[in-house]
Computed example of a mutant assay.
Amino acid sequence: MSAVADVIRTRVDAGSGALVGYLPVGFPTFDESVDAAVAIAQSGVDVIELGLPYSDPVMDGPVIQAATQQALARGFRLSHGFEAVRRITEQVSVPVLLMTYWNPVLSYGVERFADDLVDAGGAGLITPDLIPDEAEEWLAASERTGLDRVFLAAPSSSDARLVRAVEVSRGFVYAVSTMGITGARSDVDSAARGLVARLRDAGVEHTCVGLGISTAQQVREVLDYADGAIVGSALVSALSNGGVDAVASVAADLATGTGRRG
Rank of each mutant, 00 (worst) to 15 (best):
I126A: 10
S240Y: 00
G242F: 06
G183D: 07
R164I: 08
T178H: 08
R161K: 12
V188H: 06
A154C: 12
V204G: 02
G171K: 05
V150G: 03
G180P: 03
V176L: 10
T178I: 13
V209K: 08
Y174W: 14
S186V: 14
C208K: 05
D133K: 12
L130P: 00
V222A: 05
G124F: 06
F151P: 00
G203R: 09
G122M: 07
A165F: 05
V219M: 04
V163K: 14
V118S: 00
P128M: 13
I213H: 03
T207Y: 04
V236H: 06
A202L: 10
S157L: 05
G242P: 04
I230W: 07
S157V: 04
V166K: 06
G183I: 10
A140G: 06
T215P: 05
V236R: 05
L147S: 10
R220Y: 07
V244T: 15
A238R: 04
S237W: 00
V188W: 03
E134R: 13
I230R: 02
Q218P: 05
D116Q: 14
A123V: 14
V118D: 02
T178W: 01
A197N: 12
G212D: 05
F172P: 10
T127M: 06
G194P: 08
I230M: 09
I213P: 01
E143N: 14
A246G: 01
G124V: 12
L152S: 09
R193T: 06
S233D: 06
G146R: 01
D129M: 08
P128D: 06
G194K: 12
N241E: 14
V231W: 01
A197D: 15
A141S: 12
R161Y: 01
A192K: 00
S142G: 14
D245P: 04
V209Q: 12
R198N: 05
R193H: 10
E205P: 00
N241A: 14
R200I: 05
R200L: 06
A192Q: 07
